[in-house]
Simulated assay, not measured.
Amino acid sequence: MLNSLIVVFRESLEAMLVVGVLLAWIARQPDPGGLRRSLWAGVAAGLGLALALGFATFAAQSQLAGDALEKFQVGMVLFAAALIVQMVLWMHRHGRHMRRELETRAGHAAGALGLGAVTALAVAREGAETVVFLYGLGLEGNGGLLAGAFAGFVLAAATAWLVARGARFLSYRALFSASEILLLIIASALLAAGVDRMIGLEWLPPLLDPVWDSSSLLDDSSGVGRLLADFTGYRARPSASLLLAYGSFWCFSLWRLGRATPAPANGKV
């Protein structure tokens, strides 16, 4: 539930902030009425595209069985992990300029139709990412997936409202910085699940299994240990291949975050 809450919160908040930025830009235009209707049509189109991706994903799974289904599911888990990393890195570099970039795109759009297309693509991207992330989390049997997703959406709506109201105590950058680390932790858990699946299918050698056994201290099959396993990828009896993949993931992610660090800026978004 916690994983889906964080994922949906982050993705929904991004989409809502995009819409908020464009609405603020529209309000400054000479004839905002038609542009505003086009924007909401773009939002509806973007949501429709994301739902279509969701239906296509489940339809594809329903047509597969045996090894083909296993390959599809492993691929989706690893793709979800990679997509989270890509999204975090992109927002880390470009997030502080998001308002200016959106307003520039809106200004260059060919009237109401162009603005609707810009909105649809932005919303569809966030929605499509959410579909992939939730599908990957669902494959790992995370309980309370829908409840967490709903809570994340409600929390994102409340946060976007506070940002729009100019809440002094709410820093957009600090909020997204914290969510970056949480999302990378979720991505590492998805990677661990994918590596476990590949070892179980004998697509990847375990090298040494297990490297240690901490189940007597913290079992990963129940209680706090299970929560850590779902959220962080903790394993009480990890294989050497899993540890290598886990270590490589964090070295790469932190290295790329360091390289993508934007120049410091004062103020809140």
Rank of each mutant, 00 (worst) to 15 (best):
R105S: 08
V85M: 07
E101S: 15
L243N: 06
Y246P: 04
P206A: 15
L69H: 04
L204V: 10
A149P: 05
T261H: 12
L89R: 00
M1C: 09
L49K: 01
S241P: 08
A167N: 11
P32I: 10
W250V: 09
L162Y: 06
A128M: 10
D209C: 07
D209G: 12
V118I: 09
G127P: 02
E14T: 02
G143I: 08
S171V: 04
L83R: 06
A82T: 07
G267Q: 12
N266G: 14
L64W: 05
H97M: 05
F72Y: 12
G223L: 04
L254N: 11
H92W: 09
Q61S: 10
L218M: 03
Q63L: 13
W161G: 08
N3P: 15
G225K: 02
W25P: 01
L175K: 04
L190Y: 04
A149T: 14
S239K: 12
F231W: 14
G136Y: 07
A178I: 13
A147S: 12
G116F: 02
E70Y: 14
L49C: 13
E70W: 13
R235A: 03
L115Y: 03
S4C: 11
V43E: 05
G95W: 01
A52F: 11
D213M: 04
R93Q: 11
A50K: 01
A167D: 14
F72R: 08
R93N: 06
N266W: 14
R99L: 01
A27G: 11
D31N: 11
D31C: 07
L102I: 02
L83E: 07
L191C: 10
A65M: 11
G127V: 03
A60K: 10
L64A: 15
A157Q: 02
E140A: 10
L115M: 02
G148H: 05
L244Q: 14
R226W: 08
I199C: 12
A110Q: 12
L183T: 00
V88I: 08
G141E: 14
I181F: 15
Q86M: 12
F252N: 05
D220F: 05
S214F: 09
Y172P: 01
W40M: 08
E103L: 05
R37A: 12
T232S: 14
L89T: 01
L207S: 13
G141P: 09
G267W: 10
G20V: 00
V74A: 13
V85A: 06
L89A: 04
A265Y: 05
T104G: 13
A128V: 01
A122H: 03
M76G: 01
L257E: 06
L257T: 10
G111V: 12
Y234V: 03
V18M: 03
I6P: 01
L228T: 05
V154L: 09
A174S: 11
R173F: 15
G267S: 13
A109N: 10
W90I: 01
A193L: 12
A240M: 14
I6E: 02
F72W: 14
T119S: 00
